[in-house]
């Protein structure tokens, strides 16, 4: 399996004078699960879009290392799976039709596709719903389908933008179990979320605000260093200090 490392350094981005990224930096290694934690408007989506090549930084570098060698985005892109924050599936297409569509986009051999689709349907527990159209899926099922489409080409890096928004607690737990399985398969995972409690589930968290990552490390270590019991407290304290 291809190993992919993604890194950004001192990345800046402005939209019509408004700062979205102000020197953000992070590095995602294969087989690790990173969380990008921050309130709305912190710059999480902009950073994810920059990593996947959908936005171009005004300043700074984005590096893709495939099996230890620097490669351009065009080479790395087939190995990067991205799940946008907004609804991005086709409501009239069924789960099976979505999988077939992404199979063709990624030019996956039929036998490999059949095996992967079976595994993903089993992992997401959507085997019994594969003929149901995306427009008729529950919020959790919809997110799982989005994840399945991203995972079908067996990516080396997975970028997820608020994938558990609007998902019920049981589906969220299933979702995280699925992410741990993928991490153990060697995939580099970066998940952006505004749910502070999800930060503690990651191997490494990057706390983000105002387009800058102000702290990064293992969740327990950060909480211990900052003397906080949970991440929401950290952000509230920071907001109060800023005010």
């Amino acid at each position: 399996m291809t190993a992919l490392t993604l890194a950004v350094a001192d990345v800046h981005k402005q939209f019509r004078g408004a700062t979205a990224l102000a020197g953000a930096a992070l590095r995602i290694e294969p087989g690790t699960l990173h969380g990008l934690i921050g309130p709305d408007g912190a710059g999480k989506t902009t950073l994810l879009r920059t990593l996947v090549g959908l936005l171009h930084p005004d300043r700074g570098t984005v590096v893709y290392q495939q099996d230890g060698r620097d490669v351009p985005l065009l080479v790395a892109r087939p190995f990067i799976a991205y799940m946008p924050q907004q609804q991005s599936l086709y409501p009239d297409l069924s789960i099976q039709e979505h999988l077939e569509f992404f199979r063709d986009l990624y030019q996956i051999e039929y036998e490999a596709f059949a095996a992967r689709a079976r595994r993903l349907l089993r992992l997401t527990r959507l085997e019994d719903f594969k003929d149901r159209s995306a427009g008729h899926l529950s919020g959790g099922m919809y997110k799982k389908l989005g994840l399945m489409c991203a995972l079908l080409p067996t990516p080396a890096a997975l970028l997820l933008d608020e994938p558990t928004n609007g998902v019920d607690p049981i589906s969220r737990r299933e979702f995280w179990d699925l992410l741990y399985t993928l991490r153990d398969d060697g995939i580099a995972i970066l998940i952006a979320t505004a749910y502070m409690d999800e930060a503690e589930r990651c191997d490494t968290v990057h706390l983000m605000e105002g387009g800058r990552i102000w702290s990064a490390g293992a969740p327990r270590r950060i909480l211990a260093e900052e003397g906080a019991s949970h991440f929401a407290e950290l952000f509230v304290r920071r907001a109060a200090a800023g005010a």
């Binding site: 892109r77 087939p78 991205y82 991005s88 489409c149």
Partner: peptide
């Protein structure tokens, strides 16, 4: 408008 283009553009197409 529906957002599917963002995902499509992140594929090799």
């Amino acid at each position: 408008e529906t957002g599917s283009m963002e995902r499509l553009l992140s594929t090799p197409v």
